[in-house]
């Protein structure tokens, strides 16, 4: 039986999202599909799967991504869903701990990729907000909330970038003393 759950996670909270998916798996629900804020589950043995989420450089259909996903599958992982460049992997818990990266540099690279995704959208919102404020000040016949919404979006995205920056800084510090 298929079960659909609506839930929202920020892009920088991918670890919380993984944790939640693993909790769902512990309850006997395995992820089978994802689209905006919509998670589809099917029944599984409680705790059957461990989940990991990865942001790829290209779309999952890109040859480089396909090659990577095939490699993941050869190591016992399985792609269960994807959304834009995000891919949801799972692996049977019985096959041992499931990690995507075992060195700090790869974890750092993943954070930098997420930052590259968020930063331009943040700047875009800020730019649009400034243009809309100018428009409001000089041309608009009446008040509009739109530029305020843009500022709000920009602030949230920059807060996310700040979260990612904290992780990047911590990884870089660790790399001074170990791999």
């Amino acid at each position: 039986m298929r079960k659909v759950i609506k839930k929202f996670f920020w892009a920088w909270d991918f670890e919380k999202e993984e944790k939640w998916l693993n909790e769902m798996s512990a309850k006997g629900l395995a992820l089978v599909g994802y689209s905006i804020c919509t998670y589809s589950f099917e029944e599984c043995e409680p705790g059957e799967y461990t989940h990991k989420i990865q942001l790829l450089e290209h779309r999952p259909s890109h040859p480089e991504s396909e090659q990577y996903i095939r490699f993941m599958e050869e190591t016992g992982a399985e792609q269960v869903a994807s959304y834009l460049n995000w891919v949801y992997f799972r692996k049977k818990t019985a096959e041992g701990p499931f990690e995507l990266f075992s060195d700090i540099e790869s974890k750092l690279k993943q954070c930098i990729l997420i930052k590259k995704l968020l930063l331009p959208i943040g700047w875009l919102n800020l730019g649009v907000a400034i243009m809309n404020f100018a428009n409001l000040a000089f041309n608009a016949p009446r008040f509009s909330w739109i530029p305020f919404i843009n500022v709000f979006c920009a602030l949230i995205l920059f807060a996310g970038v700040n979260e990612i920056n904290k992780k990047i800084k911590a990884y870089k510090k660790e790399m001074f003393i170990r791999e």
Binding site: Q54, Y68, M72, A77, P97, E99, L100, F101, S102
Partner: peptide
């Protein structure tokens, strides 16, 4: 040493 697949691929 447990090499994770993503690290190994890179």
């Amino acid at each position: 040493v447990r090499l994770a697949a993503g690290t190994l691929y890179g």
